[in-house]
Design a protein around this nucleic acid. Structure first.
Length: 789
DNA sequence: TAATGGTAGGGGAGGAAAGGTAAGACGTAT
DNA sequence: TACTGATACGTCTTACCATTCCTCCCCTAC
């Protein structure tokens, strides 16, 4: 579903002013690939669209009323779209209310129950704070794709365009809202143009839903945990655990006590082994505990129902062998005395997962395969969230005795594992080298066995995993997972390496915690670091990496880097008042709010910005600016900032372990390539307000008193200079037409204007930039004409 | 109001606090 | 010879700058 309201340029639509002009709908049966209904409701006439049913109405009231009837007649189980929950549906309801369309708000399956809009804020540590609207449509589940993506995927941008490109490698037209009214007020052909855009917006969410298997996975999650489908989008993680707990408790005739919420102190978490930093040009084997926390809870029978204190022990007369004391000093009764509820739930979840995985292997029908894969995933996630539930202090049933015992066992186990590896694999015991654990985090250890080949490392890794597993209580199991070779260990939670699961060919390059996987730096940094790592790890050519980095730095300083590569995004995680420190993205969001409150970033949105040139020592939060604004006003970028604050440290961090501190610093950041800089002059802000513009000679840049094209010294070369500028203009024109064609191809039509203003598309930025350059160059050349006579 | 999975940890930015240095003030010797 | 002023030089104070440390914030690993 997708609807388009009409609106004046620059202002966000308001339902009591701006009309709804089109609504596109797609209806699909779950499991089928293409929709069996495709239609669009339009206000005013509209030329036909092949493959779609166009229904035109002369009044908006009729349009809305007929659309509501359509919804009731199709009687869909699930309603989806992109941001329908916070935009389309509330807008339609408010608009219908404003126009007094009768019977519009009865969209659900229960007669006489009106759909109403409520405001709600949901807040969790995992997702941050968000303000949402909630609409009841009885008997139909609203699965807003945007909400699904927010929850399940960490992306740099959540615009439908960016998301489509990311998952489907396909772009959509992003029509700026200022053009929409022109198209609507044109003729039936321009309105058809809008309808096509609108239909595309309706089909994309469906295709994404299909591709990401959202419906299947959500259904399976709902079945496994026993909560309604809507809870998965509207509620947090806890409700799923509670639901399972209630299910199990009922079987055993147990009740769950109501507890008062009383946030206490945090408890100690997992150990991260101090890394032995450096570049390892040898195989490093990784051993992992599979499902560490669930297996600890099962192995030691940790549960609400098995927790003891000294009083009960005395009262019941329990003996030493009937209960255990965890490393954190808490007491739990053993499983042979009383089996805990949580271990039982976990066993059920994990055995169900094993079965789902086994069935998945046997299954041949691709649709059923998807279902089974969704199920095993849901079971895994559910098992892992039980521990989090016991530690959630602002929750229904926190129990720190359990959660701190779990982490304490975990800490003890990783320490023991490290010792076992280092004690067993020694020269004394007949191995070629002394093994060393160079790093480990929570449930994993990275072992340097000292061997030469991946194959040998794998053999020792498997052997070690099997041997060490025997040292722990069932079902705790240490598994050999992969070998890294080579391996670049930069710091705790930051490393990169080639990932091998077979001795023949590496699977992929794996990066953890580095700039390449973080969303809060610009693509320039992420791409450059990624390329350098590839050159170092895959091509084994660090010199090539240095050369590439130097070239990129030189390009940056000479303004040859496209602005889309310099866009940094950060999330607005709290409201303006809650921020105590000044930050670039927060300040920019506030400034944008003053320009246009409707289109400014909201709580929970990611704010894109670039850093612009300003007087020296100006704080970064004063230099952040909206990329589109920068492009439109030709504002200069602070390339020095990008070099010093974005590129330099990450680059040094990856090159230092290989080249050594001194070489890395002197070659990368102080070489000849940093000398040449191009300064760009801005048209707004700063000192430009006080400067008077004086034209300069096109030939030699000497300032001129009049508006002539060249100075008297260059007069003799005038035609030569003219030719040069004309050839520049030709080159720009050619470049522009190439980009334009590319955009036309993307929008799927070669004989229509390009409307797209997608902020996520690099082509858009380039097209915009060339357009600007072309205008400037045109003005320059015109100066020759004026002085011709 | 009702509802909200956990801790560990890196690293960037801003701001306060502590430290360093050069210019100026002042005193003394010549 | 006594006194004065100019100059040079050393020491102290002050203003300004750079560094360090701490906190906030975002995002990631597990």
């Amino acid at each position: 579903m997708k609807h388009v309201p009409i609106l004046p340029p620059g202002v966000f639509p308001e339902p009591d002013k701006d009309p709804v002009i089109q609504i596109a709908n797609m209806v699909v049966r779950q499991g089928e690939h293409s929709p069996f209904i495709r239609n669009v409701f339009t206000l005013n006439t509209c030329a036909p669209v092949i493959g779609s049913h166009v229904m035109s109405f002369m009044t908006e009231k009729e349009l809305l009323s007929k659309w509501a009837m359509f919804v009731r007649e199709v009687d869909a189980d699930i309603i989806t779209g992109y941001n329908i929950q916070n935009f389309d549906l509330p807008y339609l309801i408010n608009r219908a209310h404003h126009l007094k369309v009768e019977n519009f708000t009865f969209l659900g399956r229960i007669k006489d129950v009106k759909s109403v809009i409520k405001e709600s804020t949901i807040q969790s540590k995992q997702m941050g704070k968000r303000e949402n609207k909630v609409i009841n449509i009885e008997g139909r589940v609203q699965l807003d794709l945007l909400q699904i993506l927010f929850r399940d995927y960490k992306l740099r941008s959540y615009s439908l365009n960016a998301v489509s490109y990311h998952f489907l490698q396909e772009q959509k037209e992003d029509v700026h809202h200022s053009i929409i009214s022109d198209l609507q007020n044109g003729n039936e052909q321009t309105r058809r143009r809008l309808a096509v855009y609108c239909l595309k917006d309706a089909i994309l969410p469906l295709r994404l839903l299909d591709k990401l298997m959202c419906v299947i996975n959500y259904m399976e999650m709902a079945r496994v945990t026993g909560v309604p489908l809507t809870y998965l989008l509207s509620r947090g993680q806890q409700i799923k655990v509670i639901s399972q707990l209630l299910r199990k408790a009922k079987e055993q005739n147990l009740l769950i006590p109501a507890q008062k919420i009383d946030p206490g102190e945090e408890y100690e978490g997992a150990t991260v082994i101090e890394p032995n930093k450096g570049y390892y040009n040898m195989p490093i084997a990784t051993l992992d505990f599979s499902s560490l926390y669930p297996s600890i809870m099962m192995a030691h029978n940790l549960c609400y129902t098995t927790l003891l204190n000294q009083n009960t022990i005395a009262k019941e007369g329990l003996t030493q062998d009937q209960y255990i004391k965890t490393p954190s000093g808490n007491l739990f009764i053993k499983a042979n005395m009383r089996k805990g509820l949580l271990p039982e739930i976990l066993e059920h979840l994990l055995s169900a997962r094993k079965k789902a995985k086994a069935d998945l292997k046997m299954e041949t029908d691709p649709f059923k395969q998807k279902v089974l894969d969704g199920r095993q995933l849901a079971l895994k996630i559910s098992a892992n969230s039980v521990y989090g539930f016991t530690g959630a202090q602002v929750g229904k049933l926190p129990c720190l005795e359990i959660s701190q015992s779990v982490t304490a066992f975990g800490r003890m186990m990783i320490e023991q594992t490290k010792n076992y590896v280092e004690e067993t694999y020694t020269i004394e015991n007949g191995y070629k080298h002394n093994a060393k654990v160079i790093y480990g985090d929570t449930d994993s250890v990275m072992c340097k066995f000292g061997v030469e080949t991946v194959q040998e490392a794998m053999k020792l890794g498997r052997e070690a995993a099997d041997y060490i597993s025997t040292k722990f209580v069932e079902p705790i199991k240490l598994e050999f997972e992969k070998v890294y070779f080579p391996y670049l260990l930069i710091n705790k939670k930051r490393y990169a390496g080639l990932y091998w699961t077979n001795p023949v060919k590496y699977d992929k390059m794996d990066c953890k915690g580095l700039e390449t996987v973080r969303r809060d730096n610009c693509p320039l940094v992420a791409n450059l670091i990624n390329q350098c790592l590839q050159l170092i790890l895959i091509d084994r050519n660090p010199e090539g990496g240095v050369e590439h980095a130097k070239q990129t730095i030189s390009d940056l300083l000479c303004n040859r880097i496209d602005i889309s590569n310099l866009v940094i995004t950060k999330e607005l995680t709290k409201t303006d008042e809650e921020y105590s420190a000044k930050q670039a993205h927060v300040e920019l969001a506030n400034r944008m709010k003053k320009r246009d409150p409707g289109s400014a970033p909201q709580l929970g949105d990611r704010v894109p910005y670039v850093i612009i040139a300003a007087a020296k020592k100006t704080a970064a939060y004063l230099k952040s600016e909206d990329p589109i604004y920068v492009l439109e006003n030709n504002i200069a970028i602070d390339t020095q900032y990008y070099l010093e604050n974005q590129l330099s440290k990450p680059l040094l961090r990856i090159f230092e372990p290989i080249l050594g501190e001194k070489r890395a610093e002197s070659e990368l950041l102080k070489g000849e390539h940093t000398r040449t800089k191009t300064m760009m002059t801005s048209k707004v802000g700063g000192l430009m307000a006080f400067a008077t513009k004086k034209s300069s000679c096109i030939g030699c840049k000497v300032p001129l008193d009049n508006d002539a094209a060249v100075c008297k010294h260059c007069k003799s070369r005038e035609s030569e200079i003219y030719q040069k500028e004309i050839s520049t203009i030709n080159a720009l024109e050619e470049k522009f037409s190439r980009l334009w064609t590319q955009c036309q191809r993307c929008q799927g039509s070669l004989h229509e204007d390009v409307l797209c203003t997608s902020r996520d598309c690099p082509i858009f930025y380039m097209r915009k930039k060339v357009q600007k350059d072309l205008e400037d160059q045109d003005k320059l050349v015109k100066r020759f004409d004026e002085n011709e006579w």
